[in-house]
Design a protein around this nucleic acid. Structure first.
Lengths: 253, 253
DNA sequence: CCATGCACCCTTGTATACAACAAAGATTTG
DNA sequence: CAAATCTTTGTTGTATACAAGGGTGCATGG
């Protein structure tokens, strides 16, 4: 019937209602590292925190487990998924595979108009300097790659790319890029579009691959630094708070 | 902690227990087209059939929905996902992206021993003719691609490839290949390995791309034919049985 | 002091009861 | 007769009660 049921379900049925909001809140908390990787959460605990029964909490947790955000140890508890620098690097490589195939799929039928629009959006001349270091820039950066992939006309591929992005967004948001990085991103995005417009798909893929690999390298640094920092924080705090994620660390709803 | 939690969860926690067995059974039924695409199932119905309460059934359905095997219309029912030839083609293209990146990731560190083993397994000289048209051959064919991908050393990529395979396995099993197709598969698999061993990654990717595209084309024919056939069956049968999947169509447990 | 077995507690897994909502059909009214 | 509304029925969404299993700590014996 529809091509992207997965996304439909997410937005329509899961985002509304008790289960959906809990799922989303938990996912955000994991993303923001408010729920520290490796810490344990229990269904009862979360149910009390959200003021609902265990049922919707359980469903949200099940879903998060399927999607890889946490691990359910049967009859024992849920553990927030660990950040693993190697694993994150692997996600970046998957990104490369998907995005490059996206370019390749454009083949001869290049959607010039849309690519030109993207190129314009990322014209270094028009770079809004206020965006450096902001969340807004991170979102825009991620969106560029999604948009580009969408132009290949393969919704399933985009769906997978979104999934990959969900997993690396945690670290993607950690580092605040300096002005130079922002400008470089603008240049690279712009150049990639230009290559596509010039029918040089080969050149575009080479650039895109390099571009993602740069992000990969940066993410690696940032992750290590962040983990170090958090670990130090934990080391200083009371040891009791580290074993289980206290409900207080979750945002009030 | 571990790299492939997703797979771990599947095998450890989901496959055992009530929820797990129901999940697996339903998934199989969907794969075998025993639950016809588009038909509706209800939680109560399935619970009665399996002799359990709605809870485990519900969890299994939720999971199948997240994984894209069915669509949950809120407060209305679950619909088995439609087979869509365009969508299937898209999954094949994602496969291309992932598998090709897998080859690329081997880079300079080619695991010669393992590739050589694969090449030997698919030596056309040793082709077991009895396999033609058998389920065994389909499994082996799918496994070849997984094995090859595993050699790139990126478990996450393999995980995604497995997910893609889960979605196209439905149609992959439909057509029974003739002797010629089997031999051709042997030759191509063998040749791809040889290229890799000769350090000709470029050549290997070209071949692999063509190889998958052939499967894609075949799957397209087979799907169309199968859907036609099933539709004719449905047209002949009682119309009552088509609206909802009767429990009788599910395998006894 | 160490190993081993046991008991308790905590957490998940399942069953059941109830509430809310949507769709389809009956009924009423213009 | 048609259209709109109300009712009824079926289905999912949530809450709660109970069952089962595993982990930890303690006691006990060597």
């Amino acid at each position: 019937m529809q091509r992207d049921d997965k996304e439909r379900i997410v937005s329509e049925s899961f985002r509304k209602g008790t289960t959906g909001s809990i799922y989303q809140t938990l996912r955000q908390s994991i993303m923001n590292l408010e729920l520290y990787p490796g810490s344990r959460v229990t269904e009862t605990e979360l149910a009390q925190h959200f003021g609902v029964s265990r049922t919707p909490v359980r469903e949200a947790l099940q879903r998060l487990a399927v999607e890889g955000y946490l691990t359910i140890r049967p009859k024992h508890g849920c553990y927030i998924r660990q950040l693993d620098v190697f694993e994150l690097a692997e996600y970046y490589d998957v990104r490369v595979g998907l995005e490059l195939e996206g370019i390749a799929l454009m083949g001869q039928r290049i959607p010039y108009r849309e690519v030109a629009q993207l190129a314009e959006d990322w014209d270094p001349q028009q770079a809004r300097y206020g965006m450096s270091g902001s969340e807004e820039f991170k979102d825009a950066e991620e969106l560029f790659h999604i948009r580009l992939a969408e132009l290949c006309g393969n919704p399933i591929l985009v769906q997978y790319l979104r999934d990959v992005n969900n997993h690396i967004r945690i670290v993607r948001r950690l580092g605040l890029p300096d002005q130079d990085s922002v400008m470089q991103t603008y240049r690279e995005h712009h150049e990639i579009c230009q290559r596509i417009l010039a029918n040089d798909l080969e050149g575009a893929t080479v650039m895109l691959r390099a571009h993602i690999h740069e992000s990969q390298a940066k993410s690696r640094e940032v992750t290590l630094a962040q983990l170090q920092m958090r670990r130090r924080e934990r080391g200083l705090g009371t040891d009791a708070g580290t074993a289980s994620a206290t409900p207080g660390t979750l945002p009030a709803h």
